[in-house]
Computed example of a mutant assay.
Amino acid sequence: MRIASDAISFLDTVLDRTIAPGYSRVGFRMRKRHWPDNDPRPESMRGRTALVTGANSGIGKATAAALAGLGATVLLGVRDLERGAQACRDIQATDPDADVSVVRCDIADPVSVTECAATLAHRLSRLDVLIHNAGVLPDTRQETAEGHELTLATHVLGPLLLTELVAPLLGAATDPRVIFVASGGMYTQRLAVDDPEYRESPYQGVTAYARTKRMQVALTPLLAAHYAPRGISVSSMHPGWADTPGVATSLPGFHRLTKPLLRDAAEGADTVVWLAATEPTPASGHFWHDRRSRPEHYLRRTRYSDEQAQRLWRYCRDAIHPASDQPS
């Protein structure tokens, strides 16, 4: 039995290091053969409430559908209410019992994030799961009204602000969990602590995306420590290569070449759902892929110091709380 377990672990590691098979549907389906059939348990989310940002389509929508299928009350945090309502109808067409609804949340806009948090505080007594899935991949550098680069605002600043604002609701839950949907592309990037807003480097959309996903992973252990006194678990994960509308639109060449190998949205969402619903709670502060904790680095050049991670954390805290709006 030990030999078989070691062989499975070795194969899993080989798949992960070779990337192409590991991140594809091949890797997912090979690993799935060794997962328990009843994990997460049916109805394991009954009585629990989850918020999934960017849930109009793709992995976010698949995550919302899967959590609702496990019995959760799921809020789709979306920028476009009409598209969010359509996503709810799509989910309920497949699962008429799905308890899904929409709340507006433009994660890059701090005003919208604050309004979303206020709405949740009015509607809910607690929030059990918060999933940061919303993402963008612009071709050119864009800034928000507050002057922040758009991918940083969407993937890092907005999620940090929303987590902070709903922390009282999360703290009221028995087993609260926060999950960041990152990207395997972050493995190629250093921590851009000296130029987080992409003001100095020539802008490349794919690189900006991967850089901010690296930031999510780097901040995960710090957030885990920060929220540990409230009993809130914080994790990050990457979904592998999934066939989603975002990939097809933003990376058409990659999508065309790899389409036969891409996971479907539900396969991409699997580890998100597992992190939200499995028992016992997975270890906080870790980075996951296909239900297993993964290294944060495969390249020596991407490594960063604790001091650099702390610098990024301080920069982001200052960005979401301008000097005139610092909490007392």
Rank of each mutant, 00 (worst) to 15 (best):
D6I: 11
D6P: 05
F10S: 11
R17Y: 15
A20C: 06
P21V: 11
S24K: 07
V26P: 04
G27C: 07
F28C: 04
R33L: 15
H34E: 06
N38Q: 10
P40K: 12
G47W: 13
R48V: 03
T49N: 12
A50E: 01
L51N: 00
A55E: 08
S57V: 08
A64N: 07
A65C: 05
A66N: 07
L70N: 09
V74H: 01
L75T: 00
L76S: 02
G84N: 06
A87Y: 09
Q92K: 15
P96C: 10
D97T: 10
V102P: 00
D109R: 03
D109I: 04
C116G: 09
A117T: 12
A117H: 05
H122L: 08
R126L: 02
D128N: 14
L130M: 03
I131H: 00
I131S: 01
H132L: 02
G135C: 00
V136P: 00
P138Y: 10
T140W: 09
H148R: 15
H148V: 08
H148N: 15
A153G: 10
T154P: 01
V166I: 08
V166W: 03
P168A: 10
L169N: 05
A172T: 06
A172S: 10
A172H: 06
A173Y: 00
P176I: 00
P176R: 01
R177I: 01
F180H: 13
F180M: 08
F180E: 00
G184L: 04
T188Q: 15
D194E: 14
D195H: 12
P196I: 07
P196W: 04
P202V: 05
P202A: 13
Y203W: 11
G205H: 13
G205N: 14
G205F: 10
T207R: 12
A208N: 05
Y209R: 11
T212Q: 14
R214G: 02
Q216V: 06
V217G: 03
L219S: 07
T220F: 02
P221A: 07
P221F: 08
L223F: 13
L223G: 01
A224Q: 04
H226I: 08
Y227H: 13
A228N: 09
I232G: 01
V234K: 05
S236N: 01
M237S: 02
H238S: 05
T249N: 12
T249D: 13
R256P: 02
L262P: 03
A266L: 03
G268K: 02
D270I: 00
T271V: 04
V273Q: 02
V273M: 03
A277N: 01
T278Y: 10
E279K: 15
P282M: 04
G285R: 14
G285S: 15
F287M: 05
R291N: 13
R292Y: 05
R294G: 06
S305Q: 07
S305R: 05
D306L: 11
R317K: 07
D318S: 14
P322G: 08
A323D: 14
